[in-house]
Amino acid sequence: MSKAEDLLWISQVVIADDRRAFDRLVCKYQSSVRRFLLNLTAGDSMLSDDLAQETFIKAYLNIRSFQGISAFSTWLFRIAYNVFYDSKRAQKHYEEINSSEIDKKSSVKIDFSTEKSDIYTALKTLKREEKAVILLCYMEDKTHKEIARITNLPLGTVKTHILKGKEKLNQFLSAQGYGK
């Protein structure tokens, strides 16, 4: 029902530019997309909401190119993933230009993302790709095949990232006294 429902709303957006149908899609997926981006940005809720907003706007503008081969959520997560890395690249470029600003900025950032939750600390132990792949696998319940599509990585690489990420997380969790 869920996929059929999505396809119905998507067709309404494509054919009649029905914004109410798009609103339903946003309401349905906002939580998972925002959570994914919130975890990727280490708890920066303002940045993650901006990125989520950009994700949905891009989805709306490109909805005609959605071919329905995979689930709509997979397509949406791919956009979110690209939006996040585009912003990272832009930020990196900006920081290279204005390095004096970074020191101030990073100190603010540390204050902002104070470890409210163990999850951000745990995710910090992972590499960039490992983090995204682990989040998609364990937090968003995506299959390995879907993750490969979202991240545009080969299936074997996805599996390797998950394996390595799991090892690191287990070390972290054991050190923190989980599972005792």
């Binding site: 609103d23 946003v26 309401c27 906002q30 939580s31 919130l38 909401d49």
Partner: peptide, 12 residues
């Protein structure tokens, strides 16, 4: 679960 809190309205 992140509540909407006007997010979908802002997107629209």
């Amino acid at each position: 679960e992140i509540s909407d809190d006007g997010f979908s309205n802002r997107v629209l």
